[in-house]
Amino acid sequence: MGTAETLTQAPHTKAARTSLRKRKNKEETNLAGYIFIAPWLIGFLLLTLWPIAQSFYLSFTEYSLLEAPVWTGTDNYANIFRNDDTFTKSLSVTFIFVLISVPLKLFFSLLVAMALSKNIRGMNVYRTAIYFPSLIGGSIAVAALWRNMFGLEGYVNQVLSWFGIQGVGWITNPDTALGTLILLNTWQFGSTMVIFLAGLKQIPQELYESASVDGAGRFRKFVSITLPMLSPVMFFNLVLGVIGSFQTFTSAFIITKGGPINSTYVYALFLYEKAFKHYQMGYASALAWILLVIVAVLTALNFLASRYWVFYESDGGRAK
């Protein structure tokens, strides 16, 4: 939690430094601040807080959903850490997924966003075509499609056979199944790409023009203009990528069902099955809160690190 504090501290101290405003002014912005965040705050207090608190309470109970919860203290947590091999397995599967897919997707979507940010004729059609796979994300068709691509008799193996390589059943081989899910996740880079695109377009063209006058090359412009100006958006994509990937669910749910032999049994799928298939909502809630702590710590680290590389125009140019 301290992290967001540090995020907001920079402008705060700066404001204090630049002018010693009157106390009255401060109270006014206090009020204004709460007025502006009111829609979220009201929603949070009315709709979100109660279910969250409930799930925290339920994590200390045995709760089948079909019967009232029974208080069991810290049993769920103790069992998770002591006796549950599946917990360890699914957590490590998820870590691998996050570690590979987040950087891969960031890199790929930035690359594509840069290619698509040019103003040439027909660009909107290209953009739409390239965004298309991200639209079919949760669709039923995607499972059938992925089997067509990566099955034993799939297109990938057909292409490989031209080179005399004998492929495997990529989705059903325990060593490669997770890889295909990571690939699918990367293929659906559309939303990350769009956010990069919007970020790229927010960079004032004048900066590039004056850099050109100074004789800067493309690489130089990328490093000294694009990257720093894009860093808030990149930071957003990174943080959200980490949060989202830890909860990755749909592709494993519809394509592999966590198999073969748990090799794609990602954490969110494990949690879902505990809650709705095995009637152990209490246990699932404990799992969820453990995940929350893990992701919160990682996000906190992300925010701490951001001070060294994320550049906010509003902070007067230099992030500290």
Partner: peptide, 25 residues
């Protein structure tokens, strides 16, 4: 953009709401 008391706290809460898997709420 605005400064107000507990801003960091509320922002942290905002982010935390994203980290709890929806299946349990």
């Amino acid at each position: 953009r605005l400064q107000f008391k507990l801003r960091g706290f509320w922002f942290s809460i905002l982010l935390l709401t994203m980290m709890l898997p929806g299946q349990v709420t």
